[in-house]
């Protein structure tokens, strides 16, 4: 088993199975460009720095990739955009404890940076699911967004949407 070392922004080392990293477009590109797959390259001696990902977030990402090892990696945007994305139970349980906090958001940003399409899709979907059936103020409260609208403005937005009710 070939191990490749990822280095987080806070200088933690994470040895990760080569196979897992195929899920990350960003890392896969680096591996190919650094010729880490060549037999005469000592992959262990060439850690991959990920200056945009903190250690605790990277740990979660690796955990997620381990569970999803062998899943087909999405290619491009050819999929039917109208198809409803369902967050599987395992992923839901995985995201839930950190939902509404900075950890889930950092995971989402990392998925975007590392180009892990399935993780990005599912973590975004998990966020959008929290909006469903909620009012604006409820969303605000749950996500800790300050209210910047005056009552008059809120009334104007309500008017704007009243046709939809």
């Amino acid at each position: 088993m070939v191990l490749i070392t990822l280095v987080s922004s806070d200088e933690q080392n994470f040895p990760v199975e080569r196979e897992l990293l195929k899920q990350s477009g960003t890392i896969e590109t680096l591996i190919v460009n650094m010729n880490l797959d060549d037999e005469d390259t000592d992959a262990a001696a060439m850690p991959i720095p990920l200056p945009n990902v903190k250690g605790d977030v990277l740990e979660k990402v690796i955990q997620w990739m381990e569970h999803h090892k062998g899943d087909p990696v999405k290619e491009g945007d050819n999929e039917d955009n109208n198809a409803e994305i369902v967050v599987p139970q395992w992923d839901d349980d995985f995201f839930k404890p950190a939902m509404y906090g900075s950890k889930h958001l950092e995971l989402t940003v990392a998925a975007s940076y590392l180009d892990i399409k399935n993780l990005l899709t599912l973590s975004c979907k998990a966020i959008s699911n929290t909006f469903k059936g909620k009012t604006g103020p409820q969303i605000r409260e749950e996500w800790g967004v300050p209210n910047e609208f005056t009552p008059e403005e809120e009334e104007a937005i309500r008017k704007e949407n009243e046709w939809s009710e």
Partner: peptide, 21 residues
């Protein structure tokens, strides 16, 4: 990323978003 999140909702599910901020 916000767009990606919003885009998985239908047009009507997105109405409340306007009230958030």
């Amino acid at each position: 990323l916000l767009w990606l999140i919003f885009n998985s909702l239908t047009t009507s599910e997105r109405f409340p978003l306007a009230f958030v901020c």
